[in-house]
């Protein structure tokens, strides 16, 4: 038989062997979760509780971010132009705004259009403004400018103000900056909480699994004795951690999914006022579920690995 073929056959055999070992390990790990049920339950509840808190933190952060994004999108620099400005001058101003870095979009509003809108919106306005003509209306032509990065809104507003024929700019000075700062604080705190929670869980799970493994010290000893390599011993425990994480994430996912949909429907998609919109449940809940499963599995595997390492002479 040619050497090449032999090599391929050998490779295939090794692959089969690896699959068999893996299959056995997965099966054993699954069984072991149920065999040591009381201890597994301790690990699973530990994961469950943390994941619920993590889930709440994620929901809060996402909604704060969502709200922040909505607010940021709404923030506009209203640029008032000089009274009686000519068409050509307006074009010039437009060119200058276009040139500024960080301007996302802009929109021109003719003063007559603005007054028309205002008159339509209320009768009081109508009665006052009805007799204003294009030449004597106090309303000014404006550009509505949106910026890419809301944190630079102050600088951009100043630059726009310098343009010739721009009379003044308005963007809710002070308020916007404060809001942005507040959002950042909330965001950073929630991220810190989530990370801290994950670390604490990993530690707790590691300790819980350590107890589980201590009761199986004998098993590890025997495995070593009959010639199991370290990786051979570790893999079933890693899978066991994976299953613990997987089982631990079931209840949090159910609570998150139904809880959030219920919350969303109850508040009709907004909180307190139509200004604060909640994140739509789909695909948001799928995303959270995926994150929860991933965290559960990783934390379970890591905790398990950390615990088993103690009993291996490496």
């Amino acid at each position: 038989m040619p050497v090449e073929l032999l090599k391929i056959m050998r490779k295939e055999r090794l692959k089969m062997k690896a699959f068999r070992i893996l299959g056995r390990n997965i099966r054993d790990a699954f069984k072991s979760v149920f065999r040591n049920f009381s201890l597994s339950l301790a690990s699973i509840s530990c994961i469950t509780i943390t994941l619920i808190v993590v889930s709440i933190a994620i929901i809060l952060t996402s909604n704060v971010n969502n709200f922040a994004d909505l607010v940021k999108k709404d923030v506009t620099i209203v640029t008032f132009l000089d009274q009686g400005i000519t068409e050509e001058k307006i074009k010039e101003v437009e060119q200058n705004i276009k040139k500024i870095d960080g301007v996302e979009s802009y929109e021109f509003q003719d003063k007559m259009d603005i007054s028309k809108d205002m008159m339509e919106s209320s009768d009081t306005f109508k009665s006052i403004m009805e007799n204003w003509t294009e030449d004597d209306t106090p309303i000014q032509d404006t550009f509505l400018v949106k910026v890419v990065d809301i944190e630079k809104i102050g600088d951009i507003a100043k630059e726009i103000e310098k343009i010739e024929n721009v009379e003044s700019v308005k963007y809710g000075e002070g308020m916007v900056e404060q809001l942005v700062a507040a959002f950042n604080v909330v965001k950073n705190i929630s991220i810190a909480i989530v990370i801290a929670l994950i670390l604490v869980t990993a530690f707790l799970i590691s300790n819980t699994i350590k107890i589980t493994i201590f009761s199986r010290k004998r098993e590890i000893e025997i495995m070593r004795l009959v010639g199991a390599s370290n990786i051979n011993i570790k893999i079933p425990f890693i899978f066991e951690g994976l299953f613990l994480g997987l089982f631990g994430s079931i209840i949090p996912i159910i609570i998150t999914t139904y809880g959030y949909i219920g919350l969303y429907n109850h508040f009709d998609g907004r909180l307190f006022s139509s200004f604060i919109k909640l994140v739509k449940p789909e695909p948001f809940i799928y995303m959270i579920s995926a994150v929860l499963v991933a965290i559960g599995i990783l934390v379970g595997m890591f905790g398990s690995l950390r615990a088993v390492k103690k009993h291996l002479k490496i």
Binding site: K17, I21, R24, M223, V226, G227, A228, N232
Partner: peptide
Amino acid sequence: AFAQEIFGIP
């Protein structure tokens, strides 16, 4: 059998 299974013997 355990002593054999860990080596991935079929």
